[in-house]
């Protein structure tokens, strides 16, 4: 049970002066239940890559396998794939259209051809899972705050019960608190239901705290792929392509250079605090 991307290339405006290679022979495997962050610049190919996973874009060459099946096979049901690999795009405004939030969330399951009762149950369940306040179920989705719109949009995809959920820049435009709330919600969803989650983001600091695996995209290729610690160990390479590692990782690297005995693979404030504290105690007792 997994998603395999096999030597996928994607080009657009082919045959013109503007030809762009958005993906260049990318190969990847995404296993069930993983929590992945895909990071890269605007134009690095990260959004193009995830749009191949649910078959919305078709590779110029190479193929994508879902559970061992080639999704480009003639009789492969792409509509069915999209209910299994759910995708929430960057702006919730691009998908909200119904008169009430509840009806909007029902749109996906309705397209799956489920009966009315099942549709309503799915919508209710999805809204519960994203922590959407019940008193707003009958509100117009256009009157919601940024954070609530985002939740409604995520619920709209969750209601189809996908086993993979892709979120493209889920925190864009949110304030810090709203951003943390959404990321926390996504994490707890992953912990509870073990669905595969793929976060697409250009912010290292956001993602480092949450995911188990980071894929860095650059120039249409996979640049790095590993756990946050493995990836941030390449701070120099990341900087060379204009991506910053978290501030605390830089701090640890600089302290290490100055002779502090600290672990430089630290990525979060909490880890940094523990490391510095440990090293600080060692230093203090040594100077006594």
């Amino acid at each position: 049970m997994s998603l395999i991307v096999d030597k996928v290339s994607y080009k657009y405006s082919t045959g013109t002066a503007y030809e762009v290679t958005a993906l260049d022979e990318v190969s990847l495997e995404i296993k069930d239940g993983e929590f992945i962050g895909i990071i890269g610049h605007t134009g690095s190919g990260k959004s193009t890559l995830v749009q191949h996973l649910n078959g919305i874009l078709k590779a110029t060459s190479g193929t994508v396998y879902y559970n061992g099946q080639d999704i480009y096979d003639k009789d492969y049901d792409l509509k069915d794939l999209r209910t299994r690999v759910g995708m929430v795009f960057q702006y919730p405004e691009h998908q909200l259209f119904e008169t009430t939030v509840f009806e909007d969330v029902e749109f996906g399951p309705k397209n799956q051809g489920l009966d009315e009762k099942e549709v309503a149950e799915r919508a209710y369940d999805a809204l519960q899972r994203v922590g959407f306040p019940e008193e707003y179920y009958d509100q117009s989705p256009f009157d919601l705050s940024g954070g609530q719109k985002r939740r409604a949009a995520i619920a709209g995809v969750l209601a189809m019960k996908p086993s993979v959920l892709i979120l493209d820049e889920p925190t864009a435009g949110l304030d810090p608190k709203g951003r943390n709330e959404i990321l926390d919600m996504i994490r707890s969803m992953h912990e509870k239901s073990h669905i595969t989650i793929i976060l697409v983001s250009h912010s290292m600091e956001d993602v480092a705290n949450y995911v188990d695996r980071i894929i860095v995209m650059n120039d249409a290729k996979v640049f790095l792929d590993g756990t946050p610690k493995e990836v941030f160990a390449h701070s120099k390479d990341l900087e060379a392509i204009g991506l910053a590692v978290p501030e605390v990782t830089y701090l640890m690297l600089e302290l290490k250079e100055m002779g502090w005995d600290v672990d430089t693979t630290v990525t979060t404030v909490e880890e940094a605090r523990k490391e510095i504290l440990r090293a600080y105690e060692v230093k203090k007792s040594a100077s006594k």
């Binding site: 919305i56 509509k79 999209r82 691009h94």
Partner: peptide
């Protein structure tokens, strides 16, 4: 461009 994005977002929810 926006139309293109909206279509993709709705297709991801099974719109045809």
């Amino acid at each position: 461009e926006e139309t293109d994005k909206i279509m993709k977002a709705q297709m991801a929810r099974g719109a045809d």
